[in-house]
Computed example of a mutant assay.
Amino acid sequence: MKKSKLLGVLFLVAIVFVSGCIGSSSHTQNTSAPSTTLSPTQTQTETTSSSCNCPKAKPYYPITITDFAGRNVTIEKEPERIVSLAPSITETLYFLGALDRVVGVTKFDDFPPGVQEGRTAVGGFSDPNIEVIASLKPDLILGTSMHLKYLDQLEKIAPVIIIDPKNMEEVYEAIGLLGKVLNKREKADGVIQFMKAEVSSVEFRVANKTRPRVLFISWWNPLYVPGNDTFQDSLIELAGGENVFHDAKGWAQVSLEEAVARNPEIIILSAHARATIDDICNSPLANTDAVKNGGIYFVSDDNAISRPGPRLVDALKELSYFIHPEAYGYHFQPVSCPVEG
């Protein structure tokens, strides 16, 4: 019995010895063959290329857009030096978080506060200084239809995009277009959604209410009013009113007699209209329901209501206060003509 156990142990030792020899022989043959050592970078590259045949991400630029003048404009690279030829455009760039790219503005830009600091004034709104603009070496110029007459000169400096909205819907389009040009689409979408929410809030408050006749005076002498295809006309409608000159086209010059004949119930004056309460009370407008019932209002921030940008929602809310104060649970105090005697 002991002998058989001893033979079994010796048999196992023999098997282990033979296996070790075979493994050693195999190892010797492998080390004698040529070998290649991959660096970490090579290994990563080989692994990636073998496991994924992924397409390269398409670069955002160049892009081609169609501006408000119907022009196709190609932007080759992300704009870093922008000249804005309108305060409304500058304000929109601010809300898009792109004000740091603006190197030139008009002398009338005043929002946000301090916007002139560190930037070059390139002239007025209607009379930009081409030489100053060129000296700034911009890679993008943003203007309005007012600047089409300078287009040939401006295009020699940099790509030019015309932004010229006429109503609230087109203001949304303008914001979206600038978001696309500046690779800030998500930011633009956020601004647009915020504005639409504010508009919806006002529309909800004034829904199903009577629409009083509204005369909006942009300029007093001669008398200018907003007609259809203007954002002020759009705001009056959204605020629950009826623009008495909705049938006019654009900003129209009208006579006092024509304004009286339309008998507005509410008169709203731009702060820049160059008119006082005495001007209104001592004019033929004194015979309108608006003056007789003390329905005269002055806007608090003329720039908010005259610049087609994100701040139009602030102007809209103020107009709705004037037109439908009952929708807000209080009576907004209008201006009345002084009582004689």
Score class of each variant (00 low, 15 high):
Tyr321Phe: 10
Asn208Lys: 12
Lys137Gln: 14
Lys196Pro: 05
Gly295Val: 06
Ile157Asp: 05
Asp289Cys: 01
Pro284Arg: 11
Gln116Lys: 14
Gly241Arg: 02
Glu242Asp: 12
Ile192Trp: 06
Thr28Met: 14
Ile217Ala: 10
Ser145Arg: 12
Asp302Ile: 02
Leu312Gln: 06
Glu257Gly: 10
Leu178Val: 05
Val115Pro: 02
Ser19Pro: 00
Ala134Pro: 04
Val206Pro: 03
Asn221Trp: 00
Arg262Leu: 03
Lys56Asp: 07
Ser19Arg: 07
Asn228His: 12
Val102Lys: 02
Ala134Arg: 04
Ile157Gln: 05
Arg213Glu: 13
Thr36Ala: 12
Phe68Pro: 04
Pro138Gly: 03
Glu186Leu: 13
Ser50Pro: 00
Ser300Gln: 14
Val339Gln: 14
Asp139Tyr: 03
Leu12Val: 15
Lys2Ile: 13
Asp109His: 02
Thr28Asp: 15
Gly329Ala: 09
Thr48Lys: 15
Ser300Arg: 13
Pro165Ile: 00
Asn228Lys: 15
Ser51Asp: 10
Ile89Asn: 06
Asp127Ile: 07
Lys209Asp: 04
Ile277His: 00
Pro62Thr: 06
Pro264Tyr: 08
Ser300Ile: 02
Gly124Ser: 07
Tyr297Trp: 01
Arg307Cys: 09
Gly250Cys: 09
Ser270Asp: 11
Ser35Cys: 07
Arg119Asn: 11
Thr120Met: 09
Gly309Arg: 08
Ile82Thr: 00
Gly240Tyr: 01
Ile133Thr: 05
Ile163His: 10
Arg81Asp: 06
Ser84His: 02
Phe204Asn: 13
Ala304Ser: 14
Trp220Pro: 04
Ala252Asp: 11
Tyr330Arg: 11
His331Pro: 01
Asp139Met: 08
